[in-house]
Design a protein around this nucleic acid. Structure first.
Length: 270
DNA sequence: CTATAAACCTGCTGGC
DNA sequence: TGCCAGCAGGTTTATA
């Protein structure tokens, strides 16, 4: 998403803005949002965890989060989307639509100073060099909550959601219910590698689409067919054949293979 | 600190 | 076919 927009938006001017669902702005009055964004040229595109960053020439920054159902899609001016919440008319005639059926997504406009506060508590980027086993271990130390809950916590590491947390734990052979601080040094190293491999596979496949998630060109991702446990409850594990199980952790569903991710006993082969 | 529930919302699926 | 329960990619806030 940020990669696609980085090819498309820098240098483009936003010639019109339409706010269809004001709460998407997170509290800013639509009139102020429209006034501060209309006429602005996009300076650069960035990303921090699940947040998309759009820097404007004025110094203001748009920060977008898709939450559960948000999409950002290029549409022609005459197309209309029943789930459009904020629409940006561009100087090439296209419209970039923040489309979000469930209305949980956010499109915030913040000053450069406020950006720091917004991201102050976020953990490391899992694909950057500083996401080392030691770093992950330090952030799990002393925590007795389930490792699955810790991986969903964006102050531990950013970017993992319910799908990729389950998939990373499967890849690492770690049961999602294990207390975070109980992981051995080797398990933490395996988990770090598994998180990276899981995310890289997802990116390579254009993301996981099982509903209406799409990229900016309205294309579905193909990662669904590569998932090992997520949404495979009762189906045989691709590795050992045991049925995948589902439990609830931190109010979210967690999927795992009881044989490949044992909770107790021979959980480490060494 | 940790856990849990609820809130924010609409749409889809499966069972009866 | 129709209705209803349950679930869904996330995060914040309140409560215990």
């Amino acid at each position: 998403m940020s990669r696609q927009l980085r090819r498309e938006l820098p240098g483009r001017r936003i010639v019109s803005v339409a706010v269809e669902w004001p709460r998407t702005l997170g509290g800013m009055a639509p009139a102020e949002f429209v006034a501060r964004v209309t006429g602005q040229t996009v300076r650069a595109i960035g990303r921090r965890g699940k947040h998309l960053i759009v820097e404007l020439e004025s110094g203001d920054t748009l920060v977008m989060h898709r939450r559960m159902s948000g999409n950002l899609i290029f549409m022609s001016a005459q197309e209309r989307d029943p789930w459009a919440r904020v629409a940006f008319g561009l100087d090439d005639g296209r419209t970039l639509v923040f489309s979000d059926p469930r209305k949980f997504g956010r499109v915030l406009l913040v000053t450069h100073d406020a950006l720091g506060d917004l991201f102050a508590d976020l953990g490391p980027e899992p694909l950057e060099d500083d996401f080392t086993p030691a770093e992950l271990g330090a952030r799990l130390r002393g925590s007795r909550r389930a490792i699955k809950a810790a991986l969903l916590d964006q102050t531990v590491v950013v970017g993992l959601g319910n799908i990729y947390a389950d998939e990373a734990l499967f890849r690492a052979g770690v049961n999602p219910l294990r207390p975070a601080a109980s992981l051995s040094r080797e398990e933490i190293a395996r988990l770090r590698d598994a998180i990276r491999a899981t995310l890289l596979l997802g990116i390579e496949n254009g993301g996981t689409t099982f509903g209406r998630h799409r990229d900016v060109y309205d294309e579905a991702g193909t990662n669904l067919e590569y998932l090992s446990v997520y949404r495979r409850t009762g189906k045989p594990c691709h590795v050992c054949g045991q049925p995948v199980e589902r439990v609830t952790i931190a109010q979210r569903s967690a999927h795992y293979c009881p044989h490949c991710q044992p909770l107790a006993g021979a959980q480490s082969a060494q």
